[in-house]
Nucleic acid binder design. Structure first.
Length: 613
DNA sequence: GCTAAAA
């Protein structure tokens, strides 16, 4: 049984080797030759957790192995003797709309997009993976290696998922072991399923009190999934409904800009998993129509966005000021393609003894996306865009219309570009925060269907949205943050398919030159000579490319232990508190990142980011 | 300063 990080990697190696994919347990150079031998086995806290990923055989409804749970035994909320929450799980399933729209008495026969399911797994070979934390559960190679239960497995087959994507191979066992998780995985790699499967499975097999009677107007979900935009919440809800079909697990979505009454009615009918945007959730909490006291699972999608300046106070309010159980009692999972260190530091407030997971291609932005940068003066952008669109039209593809997503900086700019495109004969629509929710959803539908194959968008569409057939992402205005660039171009090249991203660059973007050219280099993209000159000239623009550069992110806890006595980037006092110190204080990487609760006292703060900027 | 998120 693995007792350290290094052992877990070894276990992963074996598992991978036996599965025929001997590159997936790639150990990056900076992690090789770490000797775990000086580490005492760290079993006191974690308990005999990681080795016991169930090997199938458990029937649905049979109690799952108690792997990894002992570490949380103090938590309560796990009281035995409750009725199974889903005791009457076939109640109402006759009325449940078939989200697949296929067989089995579907009342909703709208054909479903199957292209998503055709995941190109060849694109996922040879992917570097980094994990850290105590007793990291080993990855699995197939869905059959995990005991998710018959109902969930059936839905996985309905989704045409043949085998788990890399992030799913690693994240699902970690999550099934009831461990907190900070996961970094490239755009379009299947993160939603990675947190939904364990949540649904956990709710099905867990011993939870029955859903409150309909009379009670306060809904008490067991799981909360937060996301930064309404459309992303809608999308997560749609996916989660497929995964939860006929499992008895009820998924409800709540977001702003739409009438609240229908959402209230849905909540009254019972909810196990609530998918929400922060503003509407706060509203529901204030009205006492939702209580978080039963929350067992908390997932933040696009977690770095959720914890940046604009969102952080609201999230802190929801997670820390309401009635949600604390870290260690609930299970918390944070997912994103990007995870800046300063955000990791904030995020660790919400986590207990968590596993850090980074899964991604070298360079973190997938090299399935061909990235181009063109020097275009502000005044020439429109005609240049028109040239691109003309060329694309000339190359006309058969079958599905190729879609082009154009990102701009401002809402007004989006409107005016849309108007200009339309008046020049290009069928375009736009999505941004000044449009009504109806208009936003209509625009997205029209774009997805190919009816309006050009979508002009602000950053509202930058993250998470899974839009099949986006062939081209144009950064008409570059963002001011390289991470936003990564998310934007990630709207193409999804599910292992290729895509093209073109950026318009001029003097106004000089602060991005360095990070952009570094990112492109890491993704094996051709960097134009003029951009390299810009990058060399740029003084301190942009943000430092993350840590080792090989991953979309690195566990900031590692940096703490390795940063030359800990005084170069952070205050020395900060280093040894909370997460910083490995158990021996000798910089050994394995184990010992433990016991986060307390110990922080807000000791990080002002001075921390300055080293980067 | 921009974007997002409750009316």
């Amino acid at each position: 049984m693995p007792t350290s990080w290094a052992d877990s990697v070894a276990a992963a190696d074996n598992a991978a080797a036996s599965g025929g994919n001997n590159r997936s347990a790639y150990v990056p150079p900076h992690l090789r030759n770490r000797q775990p031998s000086s580490e005492p086995p760290v079993l006191a806290q974690g308990g005999p957790s990681s080795g016991n990923v169930p090997s199938g055989g458990n029937r649905w409804g049979a109690p799952r192995n108690d792997y990894g749970r002992s570490g949380y035994s103090s938590g309560g909320g796990r009281g035995g003797g409750w009725n199974n929450r889903n005791g009457g799980w076939d109640r109402g399933s006759g009325r449940e709309v078939n989200p697949f729209g296929d067989d089995e008495g579907a009342t909703d026969v709208e054909p479903v997009e199957q292209e998503n399911a055709g995941i190109n797994f060849d694109a996922y070979e040879d992917i570097p993976v980094e994990t850290s934390g105590e007793n990291v559960p080993p990855p699995v190679n197939t869905f059959a290696d995990i005991d998710l239960g018959d109902a969930l497995n059936k839905n996985i087959r309905r989704c045409k998922y043949v085998k788990p994507t890399p992030v799913q191979r690693y994240a699902i066992p970690i999550s099934l072991a009831n461990r907190d998780l900070m996961a970094c995985a490239q755009t379009g790699s299947g993160k939603t399923a990675a947190f939904c499967f364990p949540i649904i499975s956990g709710i099905m097999t867990g011993q939870f009190p029955p859903r409150a009677p309909h009379m009670l107007r306060t809904a008490c979900p067991l799981a909360l999934i937060l996301s930064p935009t309404r459309e992303l919440s809608i999308q997560i809800h749609e996916e989660a409904r497929k995964f939860a079909y006929q499992t008895g697990v009820k998924v409800v979505v709540a977001y702003g800009g739409a009438p609240i009454n229908q959402q209230l009615r849905e909540l009254e009918r019972g909810v196990d998993i609530l998918v929400a945007t922060p503003g509407r959730l706060v509203d529901l909490l204030e009205r006492a129509r939702v209580s978080l006291q039963m929350i067992k699972y908390l997932a933040l999608d696009e977690a770095d966005r959720m914890l940046d300046m604009g969102f952080e106070p609201q999230i802190r309010n929801i997670v820390q000021q309401m009635d949600m159980p604390p870290p260690g009692v609930r299970q918390t999972m944070l997912f994103s393609a990007t995870f800046p260190k300063e955000i990791q530091r904030l995020a660790s407030d919400f986590l207990a003894n968590y596993v850090f997971l980074a899964v991604g291609r070298v360079g973190s932005s997938t090299d399935l996306i061909v990235q181009r940068v063109e020097y275009v003066q502000e005044t020439d952008k429109r005609s240049h865009l028109m040239d691109l669109l003309h060329a694309q039209r000339a190359n006309g593809t058969h079958g599905k219309q190729a879609l082009t997503l154009v990102f701009v900086e401002t809402k007004k700019g989006a409107d005016s570009l849309e108007y200009w495109l339309c008046s020049n004969g290009f069928p375009a629509t736009t999505i941004h925060g000044d449009r009504s929710q109806q208009e936003r959803e209509q625009a997205l539908r029209s774009f997805k269907s190919g009816h309006t194959p050009i979508l002009v968008a602000t950053d509202v569409a930058a993250r998470g949205l899974d839009i099949p057939h986006v062939a081209h992402v144009v950064n008409f205005d570059l963002p001011n943050d390289i991470d936003d660039y990564v998310h934007r171009i990630g709207r193409t090249g999804r599910a292992g398919k290729s895509g093209l991203a073109t950026a318009f660059f001029n003097e106004n973007n000089s602060s991005m030159a360095r990070s952009l050219s570094e990112l492109m280099q890491e993704a094996n993209q051709e960097v134009p000579a003029w951009l390299a000159r810009f990058a060399a000239r740029a003084s301190f623009g942009g943000k430092n490319r993350r840590g080792g550069g090989r991953f979309g992110g690195r566990d900031f806890r590692r940096d703490n232990s390795y940063s030359r006595g800990g005084s170069d980037y952070y205050g020395a006092g900060n280093m040894s508190s909370g997460y910083g110190a490995p158990s021996g204080g000798n910089g050994a990487p394995s184990g010992g990142y433990g016991a986060p609760s307390g110990g922080y006292g807000g000791s990080y703060g002002s001075g921390v980011t300055s080293a980067w900027d």
